[in-house]
Design a binder for these strands. Structure first.
Lengths: 129, 129
DNA sequence: TCTCTTTTTTAGAATTATTCTAATTCCATT
DNA sequence: AATGGAATTAGAATAATTCTAAAAAAGAGA
């Protein structure tokens, strides 16, 4: 692991949120002010390929990166904001239903986040993150 | 519903696969040879917003469009191919665990598709669709 | 330490999917 | 036939990501 790879891993893993490449880039600049965005993309890709972090796809927003530890996501239907949630682990059940092994699964639940529930006004990209 | 909207809906709904905007465009041209790609995007977006079809996000591939009827997806870890699968409906369980209502959920299971299982050779974009 | 080789990083161009814009066409209603 | 509003259109614009080829850094012997 190079210093960049390591630091990017730390940023993604301990951020507590779901950072975009751009956000990781900004963070990384605190430590390495002259790093380039290409390096961030290179390393995020490498970290995903080696299974050290995971990519989270959300409609209408750039890819996000997340720690690997098992958890699921709530996605706000209105503003797109992501929140972590821990539903019961489905691995055993899915495996049994599928009748064969698999690598992992991704579960997203679409809801209305607390902020958007308050403002029942229509706004595509208002209040929420 | 305009003729385009209707036809696009039919194409997505009855294709039996998970078409990209480009593929829908190609299909639509059979019926309306002079239609434009912008119309396809416009209508796919409208159909998604009104909940008549759904968008399926897959890593490294353009957005795909799918019928709304409840089902889940298998995603090949190696080639990215999508397959339909019907796991037990999680709605009640998730609702109970979450303690509140939600709109829908999206479950993807990452596995190795039959084709890729055969060719255990490394190929990012080989054999599969 | 000095070279040689490999890996990583870099800047910027290129690519690609999608959205935007503003003009035009289409259709329903008067 | 004239009007108004929605749908369609072509093509420009945007934005995220990948690619490219060169430069820098890191290792690995001698």
């Amino acid at each position: 692991m190079t210093k960049y790879e390591k630091q990017i891993y730390e940023i993604v893993n301990f951020s507590g949120s779901h950072l975009t490449a751009e956000q990781v880039f900004m963070e990384l600049k605190n430590t390495y002010p002259s790093v380039s965005l290409a390096t961030v993309y290179n390393n995020l890709n490498k970290l995903c390929e080696t299974g050290k972090i995971r990519r989270v796809l959300v409609e209408g927003s750039p890819d996000r990166y997340d720690r690997i530890a098992r958890h699921d996501h709530l996605v706000c239907q209105r503003c797109g904001r992501l929140a972590d949630v821990q539903f019961a682990d489905l691995t055993a059940s899915l495996r049994q239903q599928l009748g064969e092994d698999f690598f992992s699964y991704d579960l997203k639940v679409f809801y209305l986040c607390p902020d958007c529930r308050k403002n029942e006004i229509i706004h595509k990209k208002g209040g929420c993150e």
